[in-house]
Amino acid sequence: MMTEQINVQLAATQREKPDQTNLGFGRIFTDHMFMMDYTEGKGWHDPRIVPYQPITLAPSAMIFHYGQTVFEGMKAYLTEDKRVFLFRPEKNMERLNRSNNRLCIPQIDGEFAIEALKKLIEVDQEWIPTAEGTSLYIRPFIIATEPFLGVAPAKNYTFMIIMSPVGLYYKEGIAPVKILVENDFARTVKGGTGEAKTAGNYASSLKAQEIASEKEYSQVLWLDGVEKKYIEEVGSMNVFFKIDGEVVTPALNGSILHGVTRDSVIQLLKHWNIPVSERRLSMEEVAEAHRDGKLEEAFGTGTAAVISPIGEFFWEEEKMVLNNGKTGELSKKLYDTITGIQYGTIEDPFNWVIEVPIASSK
C-alpha cells in the first residue's frame, strides 16, 4: 500500500486552537484523523484522512462485547527551528503488532502506518503546540467492528489515528509522586495480556487507582499477580530503582509492557556506563535497600510523562521516603536527555528521532 493511495478529505472549517497554557492532557483533539479498514479476504484497505468526527458502529460490534482492541501512545515535537520530530515511531508500530498478535488482530504495515501518520501531522501541523513542555500526543488504535455476538476473532476492523495537543501529563511537572504498593488487586499475570497494550488492562487497574487516590497517592505499584511479591509496573508505566549505584528494572516476563521509554532509558544508562540490570525484583528487596540506606532513587518511565520520579512508597504500613522526597539526580538527567533529544536541543547519538517533512513552516 502506497501513501499516494491515502484519500484526504479536509474539514470544511477549522476549529479554534486552544489556550496553550491550559492544554491539560487528552481532552482536545485536532481537526482530522486517519482511518483504514480491514475485511477478511481483502486485507487492510481504504486508507483515508477525514475530519475528526464521531464514528458509527452497530450495537453488536464485537469491540463492545469481547474487547478486541489495541492502542499505542506517541508524540510529535516541535523544535526551536520549527522542525517536527517523532521519537522512535518504529518501536511503537512493532509493539502495536505484538499487541495485535496477542489479541488475534491482523498485522498492520508499520512503515505505511508511520507514513500515514506523517501525512496526518502535515495536514494538522498548525495544531502542534509551541509552548515549552507541550507536544502533540498521538493515539493509534484498532477496534473490532464486525457485528456478531460470538466469541471468536472478528473479521472486520478499523485502524485509526487521532491526535491531541497536550501539556505536561502531571501538572506538577517532573516532581516526585507518592506511590501506594498494591497488595490486593492484580494488573495482569504471565500468560495474560500484560505485555499487550489493550484496553482491558487499563480498565482492570481503575479500582486500585481509585483506592490509591482516596488515600492521596498518585499511582499504585503493581506486584505480580501470583505471589504478590515481585514488582512489575507503576501505574501504567515501567519502573526503575537505583540501589547502591546499580539501576534495576523488572525483566520483561510476559506480563510487563515493552516500553519504548523503558528501552531508551536502558540504552542511555549503558551509554553512560551506569550499571543497569533487568531482573526479578521483590518489594522486600526494595524495602530492605531503603532500610539500609541503599535505595537512592526510583522512577517510572512512559511516553506521557517521560520520567516520573518517585518520592515515597507505602507498603504494609511502612512508609519509604526517597531522596528526601526530591527529584533524584539520575531521574533529572534522564528526563533532560530524552526530552532534549525529542525537541532537538541536544545531540541524538542513537538516531532515535525521525523528522516529519511538512509543506510549510508554522
Rank of each mutant, 00 (worst) to 15 (best):
K242A: 04
S277I: 13
T13W: 08
N324H: 12
T79N: 07
W315M: 00
W127A: 08
I138V: 12
W315N: 01
G235E: 11
K17M: 13
V247C: 09
G67S: 09
V177D: 12
L136A: 07
L330S: 02
G311H: 04
L120I: 07
A199W: 09
D184I: 13
S236R: 01
I142S: 05
K228R: 13
I346G: 03
S164F: 10
D224M: 00
D124Y: 08
H32F: 03
G300N: 06
A116K: 07
Q20G: 10
L96Y: 03
V239R: 01
K229V: 00
T193K: 00
S277V: 15
K207H: 14
R139Q: 11
L78Y: 04
P106I: 10
E122W: 09
V248W: 00
I346Q: 04
Y157Q: 10
R15M: 13
K178Q: 12
S204G: 10
R187W: 01
I174M: 15
M320L: 14
D19E: 08
M160R: 09
G302H: 11
Q267M: 13
G325F: 03
N97Q: 05
E4K: 15
T327I: 10
A76V: 09
K207N: 13
I108C: 08
F241C: 00
S204K: 11
I55M: 13
Y169V: 12
E115T: 13
E182C: 05
L269F: 08
E172G: 06
R139M: 06
N156K: 15
E316P: 06
E172C: 08
M1Y: 09
G325E: 01
W127E: 07
D184C: 09
G302M: 06
A11C: 07
E40P: 06
H290C: 02
V50G: 07
E126V: 15
G26K: 12
V189F: 09
A175Y: 09
R262V: 01
R291I: 01
P147K: 12
G192H: 01
G133S: 07
S282F: 01
Y66F: 05
P47G: 08
Y66N: 01
G344C: 08
P153N: 02
S282N: 03
A61V: 05
D244Y: 08
R27S: 13
S205E: 02
I243C: 03
L180A: 12
E115V: 09
G311A: 02
K242F: 07
L103Q: 06
